[in-house]
Amino acid sequence: MAAREREEAAGERPAPLSLFEDVRADGADDGDEGADAAGGPAPSEDGEARRRRRTRRVLVWTLVALFALLLGGTGVAYWTVDHYASSVERIPGAFPTLPADKQPTAVPNTGTTFLLVGLDARSDVPTTGTEAKAPAWKAGAQRSDTMMLLHIAADRKSASIVSLARDTLVDIPGHGKAKINAAYSWGGPSLMVETVQNLTGIRIDHIGVIDWNGFRALTDAVGGVDITIPQTIEARGDARQWDAGTHHMDGAEALLYVRERHGLPNGDLDRSKRQQNFLRALMIQTMDAGTLGSPARLTGLLQAVGDVVSVDDRLSNTDLYELAWSMRGLRPDGVRFMNAPFGGFDSTADGQSVVLLDRPAAATLWEAVRNDRMEQYLAEHRTSSDTLGDSVR
């Protein structure tokens, strides 16, 4: 352990950790020097220093689990890299084949931006825990249920997640104006990336495709999540009633929570906030010592990731590991959630209800993402209704 700490102090990246090397189920540190035969600290050991070292190691494992959820298995490279990272399906041809001058210019040293796409359903996803066999896209078979931009700051100390409502009216190349979720159905990941790049002027570095249905397994793997409903929402049509209070949700109930929109006052806008609220709760539960300290729970979590997420084939196993390692200093409160600025509802010529962006406000947000100035943006817009708060319907 001393050798590993010297490597960290020197700024070198240590070899991938064994699952049980640094954190035991009881939270103790197997490798602390100076421990007596009974496992307690020797009289000469500085207790505060030991706690700092243990906190740092637990944080690394927190990131392992957190980025497995957000980035499709990134953190698993700390533990048996090839097995878990290779279980994440890679998507070929995920980016538009356009000349550089037809795409947003990549701004150097401004962080990394992922486009996260959640699907209504992904065909042939098994429920037995084995890997999904269906492709991430088949022409006309799926529409994206959720679109989120995940921007990771260049200093790796913060991350921002911005949701785009599925009914947002946009220009889809080759198809004209339509709801943004149609882009995935018509042209798969590459058309979706092109559409979002045209809308935002942000160069997308990577894409992750998420199967919401598979989040049942992820939720159950961490023992469920706690979600608070601020006020009772009565049943409407097929939508169930949600009673006010804190609910400990298993995977099946959490899936109902993130998919429902017809019983919510603002429909798809409220649903996107629910999805963010769920991801936040899942992150918190993942970071809980009961998950990190349980080999069974952590194993189940990592095994479920490959069934839930696909990423572009530009991300190798080594890339995933190096990204996770670079983010080891990120703290939970450094991850912020928000919706793209809302500009109202409208209807199309054929009577479809659509969501409009507040274009001037959105332009300010896109510029902040593009130039890695999200901390400044959030400081100036912390009271915005588009930013996820503690009270979510």
Rank of each mutant, 00 (worst) to 15 (best):
H248T: 12
A10W: 03
L302N: 09
G201W: 11
P230C: 07
M287L: 07
F95T: 00
W137Y: 04
L292K: 14
A100W: 02
A136F: 00
R13H: 01
D312V: 08
T364R: 13
A65R: 03
A252E: 12
P99N: 04
V193G: 12
G329N: 08
T128A: 04
Q103K: 02
G40M: 01
P43T: 11
V125F: 01
T55A: 15
A349P: 08
D26G: 09
D22I: 14
S353C: 06
L116D: 07
A77L: 15
V335W: 03
R156N: 13
L66Q: 04
N109L: 01
G31Y: 04
S294A: 11
A25F: 09
T348F: 10
T387C: 13
R57Q: 14
T219A: 02
R240C: 05
L63R: 00
L365A: 04
R122I: 00
A2R: 08
G245I: 10
E5I: 06
E21P: 15
Q103V: 01
L19Y: 13
V196K: 08
D26K: 09
P173Y: 14
A121T: 09
S123L: 08
D120M: 00
G251K: 08
G75I: 02
S123V: 04
R51S: 14
L63V: 01
D243A: 07
P230R: 04
F215D: 08
N266S: 13
A10M: 05
A217I: 01
E131L: 12
